[in-house]
């Protein structure tokens, strides 16, 4: 998939760069439309939610370990822990469940 890879990479990296750089380099004024601002405000959250549910349930070997990991991650995140801690706790919880599975079955 060499040719495909080059073209895909160009689209992936190019679009990501341009969407960051164009507004940064060109726009000086603030967007004032309340609904456009609201849409832009919610977009990061809806993207992350759609990417996580339900794909994350199947990210590990068993749905149980994934769900347990995500739920415990949620709790830790709500307690105010940062990105690294939440990611680590999610993985550790999922690993604990995975190991339990291996022992029991």
């Amino acid at each position: 998939m060499t040719n495909d890879f080059r073209l895909y990479l160009l689209i992936l990296a190019g679009s990501t760069y341009l969407i960051r750089a164009i507004p940064f380099a060109l726009l000086q004024k603030k967007i004032t439309n309340r609904y456009v601002r609201s849409f832009l405000f919610y977009i990061p959250f809806t993207v992350l939610a759609a990417m996580t549910v339900p794909a994350a349930f199947y990210a590990t070997g068993h749905i149980v370990s994934a769900v347990v990991g995500l739920l415990i991650g949620c709790l830790v995140a709500i307690k105010g822990k940062g990105l690294t801690v939440v990611a680590a706790v999610s993985c550790a919880s999922a690993l604990a469940v995975e190991l339990l599975y291996t022992v029991l079955i």
Binding site: L48, M51, T52, L70, L83, E98
Partner: peptide
Amino acid sequence: SAIMNALCLAIYGMFVAIVAPRA
């Protein structure tokens, strides 16, 4: 494989860390 499986959750853990407190 158990560790690999568990690590696949890290990226989603990061998403949760961004969304959950705001939600």
